[in-house]
Design a protein around this nucleic acid. Structure first.
Length: 863
RNA sequence: GCCCCUGUGGCGGAAUCGGUAGACGCGACAGACUCAAAAUCUGUUGCCCGCAAGGGCGUGCCUGUUCGAGUCAGGCCAGGGGCACCA
């Protein structure tokens, strides 16, 4: 028997699509565009199943939209700068560029095996000077616009590797590579002014209605808008020359009468000044700085303070003087780095007040509480429901009114004003790394930091660098950093930092519109293609990448490069690919390939026969070895099978489990489809043959029924693909294939309808199993590409039912079903239902009190 | 601690508006073909009682709304995720 040879066939069609340039696109104002983009991969070495899922989903969308007549842009590139390349350089002595480009070559080859409908002519790699030169130009222009600035900030410094680490790279206060104790260090760094767009980035989320609510929520929280007030306390006890005003931010100006202390962050300027003259203050500040920045360290640290001896005058109560502490729980990065504490209405302040014996005065009376007896025990009352008391002119007001009244009074006194505070902080992009985009700035002793003139861009990475000593190779390079100041011509040094790689991925989607343009972006091209209509990737980028890209697009808009503020009109976040885990008796993780599973679920080592513990289903990861190599799967079963399994069963937004049985199932189905066409071919009419003149006469009930199923499936399948319900589309195609395979075409009309059904099935299949689709299309006698076939339209008249099956309930319990002509009148349904013996039995001789009829669905008899 | 999401057969999941729960697939079982196996095909497959006809139960748990609840409301429980001295 003939069998489908996936390997040969897939290769054949990939070559033909390539030769015909099927997926190369250009701007065409006459046609509606659709831009599909999957998050571009980091060239880590080989593609993994997560990539396969991501790019399968994207490819289905791209092919479907293409069939729907859109001018589809579907590009691919490489997020090619980053730390792993430098690690490879250190471990294996291979140059980061070599390592990266070799990986790109490997992975490009693997992606091509998947048969993705990509316009490969637009391929870009962020590590290529042809990309990062433009990024440097954008940096310079943003610098000129004031969207980039330089400031001192404290960073995680690894003293062994001599580099700055991201928060994620600090584990238990130690560097993830070196294991060295991380220090807080002040460094001058470049920052993107993302906070200039805080409000816009927040409010525009409301308009992103094709984004998952979850991602929008996470971004809202991350931006963290809170309304409150700044107020200024007069400080007593300071030296003559010092500013005697302490600015604090609060969201609860209504509780000001309950204030019992002020607290400063350890690195607040005032705290630093005090520490300079007071050894015990200095010791406390140093201790706070040593405290790790990890979440655990913060959560478990005891609230501690150092009494500075200073006093803050209460703005509303001239006689009240609040002690000023330096406290370990106040953050310099948020608000003004100083707070007032109201212990009765903030748990943290309460803990602090109890520890240091400070007064606790309730000022918000919860509803139903008695003002004479209400007291705070171990728990603060942080609620905003209640009435203000013990608060002078605020007494009797609700919390909201009291906030307003307090702010008004502060403003009138010149002691404060209403203020909106964001959690979002500016984006520090300086990295002490080699394998990144050099920051195009020259530091001159006389002129300060100067942008590199545009004509001199790119500032190219030197190739002759060594990785044999810790620290930044760019800083160690003998000559690279030495240059002349662009302004005064004196000897000066280049900035040896490179940009955070998130910068690279903040505008690549725009570069894809005109990947070879001499400028960063060709305005006509971006105006045509942007925004990305459908962006697809992992939820792990919900905040950083997606927020940075949104910021960057706004910045590009401001400097005139693009006409849109939002880069991604639609976002889809796919789930992870998981697999069972296996461990041997010694606890060592085993690859699925090394494990043989028995029917009862137990497993043994394939070679040794030693027992293997089958563990939980977890995200595929190298460390747990629960990985399956996509290339091996494609080599065995073909890309279509891998794609089909990826789309079956689990909805795309959910995590899925990769199983050998599942792949086998997908493989069997592809063979089944092939057989369906192969077996039917001898009896099918010629392609494009007209409907037999006598068709209506030959339409037996079974043929009409088949036709109905076919057209229903076409309609439903399109809906499913529109809504990313690929698993349902897969199920419907299964159903249709089952029906077609079981159909006895015993006359000319039936054979014509069978061909129609098979052809439509193949066209529905095309976005998901494109190679098999093309092969079947060719076998059905067509010479053009299936890829060029439009998406089929269902004939609504043919898809409509003639009869409806209604459930009949008695008191809500199903007792029978009745089949009626579709849209039968209520009384017809009622009498048919009441005539059912099972219904009669259930009614037990009682009369129907009420009969509810829902057209084409149900009859409920109430007795 | 706060916020969000998810709980449906042995498993992945389906059920558009509150209207026949379990589509489709996997697995399992039985049968056909075969010397045998693989492949393929056919049938069965939520649980319980029953030879059967039939009946009862059933969408994490408890209440409620409704003629009718997987779906809506309130209260719990479990799992997953995000944020977290944010003033």
């Amino acid at each position: 028997m003939n069998r489908y040879n996936a390997k040969e066939t897939e290769e054949k069609w990939q070559q033909r699509w390539d030769a015909a340039g099927c997926f190369a696109v250009k701007e065409d104002p006459a046609r509606e565009k659709y831009y599909v983009l999957e998050m571009f991969p980091y060239p880590s070495g080989k593609i993994h199943m997560g990539h396969v899922r991501n790019y399968t989903i994207g490819d289905v969308v791209a092919r479907y939209k293409r069939a729907k007549g859109f001018n589809v842009l579907h590009p691919m590139g490489w997020d090619a700068f980053g730390l792993p390349a430098e690690n490879a350089a250190m471990e294996r002595g291979v140059h980061p560029a070599t390592w990266t480009y070799e990986n790109i070559a490997t992975m490009r080859g693997q992606l091509k095996l998947m048969g993705l409908s990509l316009d490969w002519d637009r391929e870009i790699a962020t590590c290529h000077p042809g990309y990062y030169a433009h990024q440097q130009r954008l940096f310079v222009e943003m610098l000129e616009k004031g969207l980039v600035y330089r400031k001192e900030s404290s960073v995680n410094w690894d003293p062994v590797d001599q580099t700055v680490l991201a928060n994620e790279q600090v584990i238990d206060g130690k560097g993830w590579r070196s294991g060295a104790l991380i220090e807080r260090r002040k460094l001058s760094q470049w920052f993107f002014k993302i906070t200039a767009f805080s409000d816009e980035l927040l409010s525009a989320l409301d308009g992103l209605d094709r984004w998952p609510e979850k991602v929008r929520l996470m971004q809202r929280k991350w931006i963290g808008r809170s309304e409150g007030a700044t107020l200024r306390f007069r400080i007593e006890g300071l030296g003559e020359s010092q500013d005697d005003r302490l600015t604090v931010f609060t969201t609860r100006p209504d509780t000001l009468f309950g204030a019992s202390f002020c607290a400063l962050a350890a690195n607040h300027p005032l705290a630093v000044a005090l520490a300079a003259n007071d050894p015990s203050a200095a010791a406390f500040v140093a201790e706070c700085n040593r405290l790790g920045t990890s979440e655990e360290a913060i959560a478990t640290a005891e609230k501690r303070g150092f009494d500075t001896g200073l006093k803050a005058r209460h703005p509303f109560l001239p006689d009240v003087k609040l002690p000023v502490y330096i406290a370990n729980f106040v953050l310099m990065e948020y608000g003004s780095g100083a707070i007032f504490g109201c212990p009765a209405h903030d748990q943290r302040d309460l803990d602090f007040a109890r520890k240091y014996g400070l007064p606790v005065t309730p000022v918000v009376l919860p509803p139903d509480a008695d003002p004479a007896t209400f007291a705070i025990g171990d728990e603060a009352y942080p609620g905003d429901d209640g009435t203000i008391f013990n608060s002078g002119f605020l007494d009797g007001l609700g919390v909201a009114e009291a906030k307003r009244a307090a702010v008004d009074r502060l403003a009138a006194q010149g002691d404060g004003e209403g203020r909106v505070q964001y959690r979002l902080r500016d984006w520090g992009i300086s990295r002490q790394r080699y394998w990144g985009c050099p920051i195009p700035v020259v530091h001159c002793a006389a002129c300060g930091p100067q942008p590199v003139p545009v004509a001199e861009l790119p500032v190219a990475l030197p190739e002759d660098v060594g990785f044999d000593r810790p620290g930044n190779p760019l800083a160690h390079h003998p000559t690279w950093k030495h240059t002349a100041c662009p302004k005064c011509g004196a000897a000066a040094e280049r900035d040896t930092d490179t940009m955070d790689t998130f910068v690279d991925s903040s505008w690549y989607f725009a570069r894809f519109c005109s990947p070879r343009a001499a400028t960063a972006l060709d305005r006509a091209a971006v105006d045509y293609w942007l925004p990305v209509d459908q962006y697809i990737g992992g939820i792990e980028h919900a905040i950083l990448h997606l927020l940075y890209a949104r910021f960057f697009t706004r910045a590009l808009q401001e400097i005139g490069y693009v006409g849109v503020a939002e880069p991604f009109a639609g976002l889809f976040t796919q789930g992870m690919v998981c697999h069972e885990t296996y461990q041997d008796a010694g606890g060592r993780w085993l690859f699925p390939d090394d494990v043989e599973k028995a029917a009862d679920g137990s497993a043994v080592h394939a070679e040794t026969g030693a027992p293997v513990t089958v563990g939980r289903v977890l995200k595929m990861s190298k460390s747990k070895r629960n990985v399956v190599d996509p290339e091996a799967i494609i080599a065995t079963y073909g890309a279509d099978t891998a794609r089909w399994f990826m789309l079956s069963d689990s909805p795309p937004e959910r995590d899925m489990e990769w199983t050998a049985a599942g792949v086998e199932g997908a493989w069997r189905f592809s063979q089944r489809l092939w057989r369906l066409v192969d077996d039917s071919l001898p009896i099918l009419p010629a392609p494009g043959a007209p409907l037999p003149g006598s068709l209506p006469d030959q339409l037996t009930a079974a043929t009409a029924e088949l036709r109905r199923t076919v057209h229903k499936t076409v309609a439903a399948c399109g809906d499913d693909l529109e809504q990313f319900r690929f698993n349902r589309a897969v199920a419907r195609i299964h159903e249709l294939a089952n029906v077609l395979a079981g159909f006895e075409a015993d006359n000319a009309g039936a054979r014509w309808v069978l061909r129609e059904g098979i052809e439509l099935l193949v066209r529905l299949l095309a976005p998901m199993m494109p190679h098999l689709g093309e092969e079947l299309w060719e076998r059905l006698g067509y010479s053009g590409y299936l890829v060029d076939q439009p998406w089929p339209n269902a004939d609504a008249a043919l898809a409509s039912d003639e009869r409806a099956v209604l459930a009949v309930q008695v008191n809500g319990k199903k007792r029978a079903t009745i089949t009626l002509p579709v849209d039968s009148a209520e009384d017809v349904a009622r009498s048919a239902a009441l005539a059912e013996p099972a219904v009669q039995r259930a009614m037990d001789g009682k009369a129907a009190r009420k009969v509810i009829v829902v057209r084409n669905r149900i009859v409920n008899v109430v007795v």
